[in-house]
Computed example of a mutant assay.
Amino acid sequence: MKKTKSPPAPKPAALTEKELAARNDAALARVDGMEDLEKLRNLMANADRMGVMPVRDAAFRRLALIQTEGEPGTIEYDALQTIFAYEQLVREELGKAKRLTRTRMKLTKSGAVNALSDFPTATAEYSAFDTLIARGLQDLTGEAVILRHADDFDSATRDKAEARLEAAKAVPEDAVTDA
């Protein structure tokens, strides 16, 4: 008996610009309600593969948000979001999870202010700043957190944070000094 090959399945028709925009808008609308870390990571990967950066960025921010415990708007909460954001970028780059153990320990032992105070003067070993800036996530840098909570830091630390962001041409709109 001779087997015959079935013809290949027809390729789906290309989406129109309008259909593509509607699909992307629907994906963007779903992001705010998502709670599953792996589903968010899958959405990010798919959006990245398809070049839909608004969906990818929204999923990335949501991922950092749902991992963060505590009271939104506090310095501890913002510092943890910075840590989660950078850890996710490293995870994407390396293909495996890598935690900022020293930063987390310092945050736990000495508090967010002490942990963040070193960020503006960090050396080349501190690649989180450059990585976050390159991805357009300047509001998630430790320096932006310092500026959002300016009253908690001395003027020298605030000045260094502002200078570092300005040197990178990345002063976040929501990082304004109160002092």
Rank of each mutant, 00 (worst) to 15 (best):
A112I: 13
E69G: 13
R158T: 02
T123Y: 10
G33N: 11
N42A: 12
T157Q: 02
Y86S: 00
A14I: 01
R148N: 09
V145W: 01
L37T: 09
L132S: 04
Q81D: 06
L15E: 13
E125G: 15
D159P: 03
S127F: 02
T82E: 04
K39F: 00
A47V: 03
M44C: 09
K96G: 05
K11H: 00
A26H: 05
T103A: 12
R135G: 05
L132Q: 06
R91N: 07
D159S: 14
G136V: 13
R99P: 00
K11L: 00
D178N: 10
S117C: 14
A168E: 01
F60Q: 03
A150D: 14
S6E: 06
I133F: 05
L20S: 14
D118M: 08
A179F: 07
A170F: 04
R91L: 07
P10K: 13
L116Y: 07
R49A: 15
T82L: 01
N42H: 09
R135Y: 12
R148S: 08
A170Y: 01
I75A: 10
P54C: 11
A27E: 01
R99I: 05
G70R: 00
A45I: 05
R49G: 12
E69N: 13
A58Y: 06
G51S: 06
P12F: 00
A59P: 02
Q81W: 03
E125F: 15
A128H: 10
D57Y: 07
A179W: 07
Y86M: 01
A26L: 09
F153G: 04
E17W: 06
A13E: 06
D32C: 03
K2Y: 05
K39N: 01
S127W: 01
A45R: 13
P7S: 03
D154A: 07
G70E: 02
A170R: 01
L137A: 08
A144C: 10
L107W: 12
R148Q: 12
D151L: 14
M50T: 09
S117T: 15
D152C: 06
A179G: 12
A47P: 00
Y77T: 03
V90M: 14
I66R: 05
G73M: 08
V171C: 06
V171N: 04
E93W: 05
R158F: 07
K2A: 07
Y126R: 15
G136C: 12
A156E: 06
L20T: 11
N46A: 14
V90W: 08
L15S: 12
L89F: 14
P12N: 00
T131S: 15
A59K: 04
K169L: 04
L94P: 00
L37D: 09
A179N: 09
E69H: 13
L137E: 00
D178W: 09
I133R: 11
I75M: 08
E19N: 08
K18R: 13
Y86V: 08
K160A: 15
M53D: 10
A122C: 10
E166P: 01
A128W: 03
T177V: 15
